[in-house]
Each structure stands twice: as structure tokens, then as C-alpha cells.
């Protein structure tokens, strides 16, 4: 795992160009403007993770889908397993921001939560 790697930080829209040096003494990150970049670079060369955002079907809501996200980042290789569960899920209206939609998504231990309020439809 020795060597140098260039990465674009995805921590914020600045998109800092990071240089990661992997040496027997440890991982050294440069080019980041904030601590977020350091954390991202270390994870990216060891265990890359992402936050997954999607939508879940709503029954009886004013709109058909409620937007959701994983409450924290999950391992990259779990993204599609996580999506599979999200796709199978549906919830009744009303939904509130922060409502837990899935308790433990695809065995990651991470919750999927609503990111939007969806009111009940009046024409029921």
C-alpha cells in the first residue's frame, strides 16, 4: 500500500486536490484546507465510504416519494445492497424530517432517515 495518490476531496464543494502519501510510517495527507479533507483521504485509501441519498414510496401522501438519506456514511461496497432495501420500503404519510425509515440498512448498522416532510393527501 505504499505510494502517492492524488484525490479530489468530496467533503464539500470546494473539491480540494489532495495528495496522499502512504508510507510504512503512516498515511500523510496534504492539500486539504480543512480537517474534513484529512479524514476523507485516509478513509478513501483504506475503507472508502459514501452517504447514500434516495427516495422511498409514500402511501397517501401529497407527493409520491419522500427523500431519504443514510444517517452517516456507509462502506462503498454496501451502496447497492442499501439501495435494494430502500427500493423495497414504503411508508404511510405523514412523514417528518428525521423519521427513521429503515433501522439498520443492509447490515451496516446505519439508519435511513427521511429528509423531507410529506403531508397526508386530503383526497385520500
Amino acid at each position: 500500500m505504499n505510494g502517492e495518490k492524488e484525490l479530489t476531496c468530496i467533503g464539500c464543494p470546494l473539491g480540494c486536490l489532495l495528495t496522499v502519501n502512504m508510507t510504512p510510517e503512516g498515511i500523510f495527507v496534504s492539500g486539504n484546507t480543512c480537517p474534513r479533507g484529512d479524514v476523507y483521504a485516509r478513509k478513501e485509501v483504506t475503507n472508502p465510504t459514501r452517504i447514500v441519498t434516495s427516495t422511498v414510496r409514500v402511501q397517501g401522501g401529497v407527493i409520491a416519494r419522500v427523500s431519504v438519506k443514510t444517517e452517516s456514511d456507509i462502506p462503498k461496497e454496501k451502496i447497492f445492497a442499501c439501495m435494494e432495501e430502500i427500493r423495497k420500503t414504503s411508508v404511510p404519510a405523514p412523514v417528518r424530517i428525521g423519521d427513521v425509515i429503515i433501522r439498520n440498512c443492509a447490515g451496516t448498522g446505519v439508519r435511513v432517515v427521511a429528509t423531507k416532510d410529506v403531508e397526508e393527501s386530503c383526497d385520500g
Partner: peptide
């Protein structure tokens, strides 16, 4: 944005 190339396409 560069970050979107990375996390939307490259990924």
C-alpha cells in the same frame, strides 16, 4: 464541480 465527477461518475 470536481467532487461530482468523483462521486457521481468515477464511483
Amino acid at each position: 464541480l470536481k467532487r461530482n465527477i468523483v462521486q457521481c461518475l468515477d464511483d
